[in-house]
Amino acid sequence: MIRFFQHLGHSTTSSFAKLGRSFFFLTHTLTASVSVIPRPRLLINQLYSVGVLSFLIITISGLFVGMVLGLQGFYILSDFGAEETLGVMVAASLVRELGPVVAALLFAGRAGSALTAEIGLMKATEQLSGMEMMAIDPLKRIIAPRFLAGFIAMPLLAALFSSVGVLGGHMVGVGMLGVDDGAYWSQMQAGLDFQDDIINGIIKSIVFGFAVSWISLFEGYDAIPTSEGVSRATTRTVVNSAFTILGLDFILTALMFGDI
């Protein structure tokens, strides 16, 4: 019994300590981010590995998610004779929820885990320590550009996901199932609002990009510098990112769409 309380107490204090470290890390990263501005090359390198390399998985997934939405939506809506509203259904689900959320989950799996592993290995091979001894702040040189890149790439990737998804829904709905082309687009435009839907969707993806970049970089930076430690940190990045994305999504949705 005492063991149990000991264990509970230990894990409580250690998780609070970790939370504290992560906030400390975040504030340092944010201040360090300023120093990236005069050196765009660092940012471009990272946009490449975070953004360009995630491009394919995001667009292909977006296309298939859109196609599935088109197919499923069509069967359900046709029961009510409301196939014409397929466009709204596909676009609203993508822009409000699936675009930001699924893109962020894929981003965490593709780019986030890679970031954690990269930073963790840099720590394990003393590269971070070596930079500190060369009087180069690894937060400025290594962490901040990656953080900014994630923060910038995420909304773009989510927008790509949603857009490609809407086209995928069009391909299936209009191209294969015979929904009227004009109705698909006009119902969509009438049903979705720029402010309420598009902007809120973009805000979501910005928040998710911030969260995933933060989690994955911190897990790498805080990893135990052994191969086992790095692999655990990578797993934690994916798991914690997924929880955080879904939790934040609920909170944001409640704030944005549910007049709270």
Binding site: L121, M122, T125, E126, Q127, S129, G130, M131, E132, M133, M134, A135
Partner: peptide, 15 residues
Amino acid sequence: RKRMGMLFQSGALLT
């Protein structure tokens, strides 16, 4: 630190 060099066991080169 700019005036101290340190040579790590692994080299610690940026990969």
